[in-house]
Design a protein around this nucleic acid. Structure first.
Lengths: 201, 201
DNA sequence: CATCGATGGTACTGATCAGTAACATTGCTT
DNA sequence: AAGCAATGTTACTGATCAGTACCATCGATG
């Protein structure tokens, strides 16, 4: 019974800590959240936290790694939702990001925010951030190419910048700014982009 | 003589403080820089700083206001450089931003960064940031319209997001990312955008 | 010279925070 | 029941930092 309760309401402390970290770090920023606040929000204490993460920096890195993995799983989802349809996958992803920008908390991309907050080039989180963004861009280029557009790299870069810019705008201009029109803008971009002349095998 | 030296090497403390704040706040982030560090870098002390700025938050707001004013002065420069030539002004501005993205410190837009670092919606700096970004967008829409493009608002929004995204990318993906191709991408966007059929009075 | 305002310097308060030590407790396994 | 590993609890250290009190100094002005 106590076991059941633990099973349901209390996952292992490491998970609870990461869940709390996600909420607080994202909402308030990395610097504004103390280790103690996370431990308390995770219904545990600082000691247990430090038994799972050797420092706050490592907790931050773990938090960002988790987010990156989750974001990258979205590509898999897109493939499953629109198998064999690169254009459909592309639009699915853009819609998802766009919806997130609309309904989200207005705090933009957690990875990008972390990059802003962490000025030190040596911080362990920087590797995570940079690697993630690079993979995202590579995936995007590949998908745009697969969808048959004539110049996949510039087009993918434009889409990439639109997405990054939109998420950033939410924080500076607010929800009413151009960030809220992300999908429409991306759609217009795709519509006017020329496709390769039928190359399909 | 002492007066001359003061005139040359030592501007009034308020200016020195703002100059130091610009360097340190931009390079290391708002939270990472102490008031003391700024005072020392400004060759003065905390007391004098607090005689000119009632709190660190106000210093931050002043720092951002100064940057915003400086950024907005760029529109004036564009008008002077290409009088009566909206298209030329537009491209001049895009080139300037693009060059900044290339040669800059890789820390992106100070105003946007501040918005990331300041999560509290009540912070005095948020008004500065939001107002600035709004004006920038309005100016951009007006300029794109003046340049004769058929659908000025969406085009201006796309450009706006490209610029914001590029500056953000410098921090997350680094200098080699798509942020470094800002002008080429914006140029392609403008080239493929239809113009209004001659309407000029 | 006297005065006054602005500035410099020092030392402090109070608060927050990362990280640790030492001990108590719980729950599972044998 | 005994033992063990993970977790909870409390209290602490050392450091940093925003903001202030108090006094010294300097430069201009009368």
């Amino acid at each position: 019974m106590a076991r059941l309760k633990r099973q349901l309401a209390q996952s292992p402390p490491r998970e609870r800590i990461l869940r709390a970290a996600r909420e607080l770090f994202y909402r308030d920023g990395l610097n504004a959240v103390s280790v103690d606040a996370i431990a308390t929000a995770a219904d545990t204490n600082k000691m247990t936290l430090y038994r799972h993460f050797s420092s706050k920096d490592e907790l931050v890195a773990a938090y960002l790694s988790e987010l990156a993995a989750q974001a990258e799983a979205l590509w898999e989802t897109a493939r499953n939702e629109h198998p064999g349809d690169a254009e459909g996958q592309l639009r699915y992803l853009l819609k998802r990001v766009s919806a997130f920008a609309d309904e989200g908390s207005g705090r933009g991309c957690a990875l990008a925010n972390a990059a802003v907050e962490i000025a030190e080039p040596r911080h362990p989180a920087r590797r995570v951030i940079e690697a993630h963004k690079r993979r995202q861009r590579e995936n995007l280029v590949a998908l745009v190419r697969e969808a048959g557009y004539a110049k996949p790299e510039p087009l993918a870069d434009e889409l990439f910048l639109l997405v990054e810019g939109a998420r950033m705008c939410l924080q500076s201009v607010g929800r009413t700014g151009p960030g809220s029109r992300l999908y429409a803008l991306a759609d217009a971009l795709l519509a006017s982009a020329p496709k390769r002349k039928s190359v399909k095998a």
